[in-house]
Design a protein around this nucleic acid. Structure first.
Length: 229
DNA sequence: AAGGAACACAACCGCGGATTC
DNA sequence: TGAATCCGCGGTTGTGTTCCT
């Protein structure tokens, strides 16, 4: 049995949002709050699918969004977080107040990727581009024992150029000094925590909802350590 | 000045996980 | 317990803008 479409495709607008649509969406959410995206378009008088409304609100209309260029600090933080979390844009966005996952993803793909490539670093693995895979081991357990970074180098990089090597050394230290531990994501206003919320701070920081189970023991083994970002 | 290439970013699509019934 | 439904995420595409020749 197939999955039903999220909305009535035949009667929905697509493409760029108009000012009037934006205004309608903002006015509706101001009055009724976020949530129930499926029924929102009809209630707000919008010929859009719920997903489209959600995306427009989260990525563009939300009042707490920080517009404008990324700072150098944000740049470095994104790189650090990406080296730890990979393409988990929503988790990365949770650490950057006022930034959205989509914005960070776009910024990564257009700016940071190129920046890392220019430094001779593979943006996907955060390793020097020409270093063989066998040179590195992902060692969470080792990190636990020794209190060092995630990537452990097993051999000297004899194959890379000195420029690339120094670039990597600089970057490697960036990783090693992280002093990581998990803490709740940034929030503008602290919401009261409901009785039934039984999540530890680790799972809360991963964006889990109150009705979701705590999964501390299964998240990549990351959470046995103290990860403060 | 024109046209093509490269870039930037908003928006869409499909999927997976969570929730509901 | 399993099907139906909803939500959110990450990958990808489309389009407007800027840069270069």
């Amino acid at each position: 049995m197939g999955r039903s479409p999220c909305c009535e495709k035949a009667h929905t607008n697509k493409g760029a949002w108009t000012k009037e649509e934006d205004d309608r969406l903002i006015a509706y959410i101001r009055t009724h709050g976020e949530g129930c995206w499926r029924s929102l378009p009809k209630a707000a008088g919008l010929l859009r699918c719920g997903k489209s409304c959600r995306l427009r609100w989260i990525n563009y209309l939300r009042p707490d969004l920080k517009r404008g260029n990324f700072t150098k600090e944000e740049d470095e933080l994104i790189i650090k977080l990406h080296s730890l979390l990979g393409n988990k844009w929503s988790l990365i966005a949770g650490r950057l107040p006022g930034r959205t996952d989509n914005e960070i993803k776009n910024y990564w793909n257009t700016h940071i990727r190129r920046k890392l490539l220019n430094r001779g670093i593979d943006p996907a693995t955060h390793r020097p581009i020409h270093a063989p895979l066998s040179d590195f081991t992902i060692t969470f357990a080792e990190r636990e024992k020794k209190g060092v970074g995630i990537l452990r180098r097993e051999e000297e990089m004899s194959s890379s150029s000195s420029e690339e090597s120094s670039s990597w050394q600089q970057y490697k230290h960036l990783d090693l000094n992280l002093e990581l531990s998990i803490s709740p994501p940034f929030q503008e206003a602290v919401q009261p925590i409901e009785e039934e919320r039984r999540l530890c701070s680790n799972c809360m920081s991963l964006g889990l909802q109150k009705s979701q189970e705590c999964k501390c023991n299964s998240f990549l083994g990351l959470l046995t350590g103290s990860l403060r970002l």
